[in-house]
């Protein structure tokens, strides 16, 4: 595969994704939606927390939940952003077959389509955290933030999520119905098993290994530690592991899941060609 083919597949897909993502309505409504949606999502969680904890917003659990929920926005955005491109192009725009016969590298095309969702996801994460700092007493001491760890972790995690998105895109290719729900269903399932809003110790013992096997668990833990180290370390789940050890686990699991994703996508791609599903529209 030539570098120029790979780059042009990714670059043009990113451009297309951004045009679609940012032009579905007028700029003002797009800006309002981009602000209101993440704040509404966070507000639901904050109200639920407030009721359950009887207003104890000073507990370490609050920033744990708040930041976990904020960064979890990336999981849905990036993973679904990549896999949804299959549904969008095949069912809505009926262009997937034209992409397939073009001299591009389809996995990079799909990853490129996810870039726009990464950007809008980043805006949502930023707004959610800013709202927490300004209005909900979430405390981040910026002088003590480990920025290197934060950006390295963020980068590794986003690449990992994009590759998981590729896995879902492969499955989506081979499914003719209900494929639109695959991304959301997976993101929903991972929400429980990634320690996003509660430590894994809360889960029944027999379910915890699922969480330990998920790279998102280590990713969220490191993001919290890089921003509010002492709060995150107060929870016992991964307390015995250093930042570097957790980063090592995150990298290892990312490589493992990334490799699996690429092979699964290739298999699904070949299977879709065998079954004639590349241009199958269902109007379902």
């Amino acid at each position: 595969m030539q570098t120029s083919t790979s780059w042009r597949s990714f670059r043009m897909a990113a451009w297309l994704g951004w045009v679609i993502e940012s032009n579905w309505t007028d700029p003002f409504l797009f800006a309002v939606y981009s602000i209101v949606k993440p704040i509404s999502g966070a507000a639901i969680l904050v109200i639920m927390y407030g009721i359950i904890s009887q207003g104890n917003y000073d507990s370490a659990l609050f920033p744990y939940i708040y930041l976990g929920n904020a960064f979890y926005i990336y999981v849905g955005a990036v993973m679904t952003g990549v896999s949804w491109a299959v549904v969008d192009d095949r069912e809505h725009y009926k262009t997937l077959k034209y992409m397939y016969i073009a001299p591009i590298y389809i996995p990079l095309y799909l990853l490129g389509r996810g870039v726009a969702r990464f950007i809008t996801g980043s805006i949502a994460v930023f707004i959610t955290i800013a709202a927490g700092l300004l209005f909900l007493n979430v405390k981040i001491n910026f002088a003590e933030v480990d920025w290197l760890l934060f950006f390295v972790t963020l980068f590794v995690g986003v690449v990992m999520l994009a590759l998981l998105g590729l896995l879902l895109a492969g499955i989506t290719l081979t499914v003719a119905r209900h494929e639109g729900f695959i991304g959301e269903a997976t993101a929903g399932a991972l929400y429980i098993f990634s320690g996003a809003i509660f430590p894994l110790d809360v889960l029944p013992e027999w379910l915890r290994p699922v969480g330990y096997f998920m790279p998102t668990t280590y990713w969220l833990e490191l993001l919290r530690r890089s921003l509010v180290g002492d709060v995150a370390q107060a929870f016992p789940t991964l307390a015995n592991f250093s930042n570097m050890e957790i980063l090592g686990v995150l990298l290892a699991l990312s490589v493992f899941f990334g490799t699996v994703s690429i092979y699964v996508f290739r298999w699904c791609d070949a299977r879709a060609r065998e079954l004639g599903l590349i241009d199958r529209t269902t109007n379902y």
Binding site: S4, T5, R8, S9, M12, W15, L16, V19, I20, N23, W24, Y93, K94, T95, K97, Y98, M99, I101, A102, P103, I104
Partner: peptide
């Protein structure tokens, strides 16, 4: 080396202009 057109369908990205749709596909072919 190939390309294809299917009749009787309204494929294409509706949010893009005619020029943008065509330009994008030309870029995919380098």
């Amino acid at each position: 080396r190939i390309n294809m057109v299917s009749g009787g369908e309204s494929s294409g990205y509706g949010l893009l202009t005619v020029r943008e749709n065509l330009w994008m596909f030309s870029q995919f072919y380098g």
